[in-house]
Design a binder for these strands. Structure first.
Lengths: 113, 113
DNA sequence: TCGGTATATCGTTATTTGCCGATATGTAAA
DNA sequence: TTTACATATCGGCAAATAACGATATACCGA
């Protein structure tokens, strides 16, 4: 039989629901969907194979309408839930979507909700 | 162009995420998926065309591990979010899934997350 | 090594949520 | 028309969340 790796359980799903139960955090996830169009050319969108699609905290902060500290905290909630992944490069911390987790969550909804 | 009726917006989605960001409420929604198997024969599952799949509050309460008042409150949060619908028949209030809303939410996730 | 910039963390306050017991309300049955 | 049952609502308290400014930490460039 085909083995489904990393199938999501209810507990993990609840953690993701919590992460998304805030308008600003939902917006962040959505804005990162098309980082190149949502963030200006000057913005630090990573184009290298290094960490493609990653955007640094200050650029995200400029779009959220919340303080730097709140933005940082929201990013870490999204990171903890698994919806985002991160990489520090020099003095910047880049965040991008974890498409694999998002796909699993979407599948979970379709199957288990 | 094809008109998408009742397309969900972000605000509604956040309300649904909030409703599901609690393990007990998620369980309730899932238990109601197969009301006939999850609730005993003696339980007041409505089989008539009247309100098919509906289960009364006390039967749901027995399964949740929370108090009667908490169960009632959780049901009304799920109702308010649109994930459930309700009908009072005699002294019982029946709740069942609103499959249309659940489908729209699932589609929203697939398209907008 | 010293600013300067980027980010994370801390401490705080206001609001919301989780959850309960007690009580009120609504309905049926005796 | 009492009584019993089903459900909703109220009042409360502890915990979690929202959000901020201030501060600490990390890294870089001069």
């Amino acid at each position: 039989m085909k083995q489904e790796l990393h199938a999501m359980n209810d507990e993990k799903a609840v953690e993701i629901f919590k992460a998304l139960s805030n308008q600003t955090r939902l917006n962040i996830l959505q804005m990162l969907k098309n980082a190149e169009t949502n963030f200006s050319a000057q913005a630090h969108v990573i184009k290298e194979a290094d960490f493609e699609g990653g955007v640094c905290v200050s650029d995200i902060h400029k779009k959220t309408g919340t303080s730097q500290s709140t933005t940082s905290q929201y990013l870490s909630i999204l990171l903890q839930s698994g919806l985002l992944e991160t990489k520090r490069i020099g003095q910047w911390t880049y965040y991008r979507r974890n498409e694999e987790m998002i796909k699993q969550f979407s599948q979970y909804i379709g199957l288990n909700l």
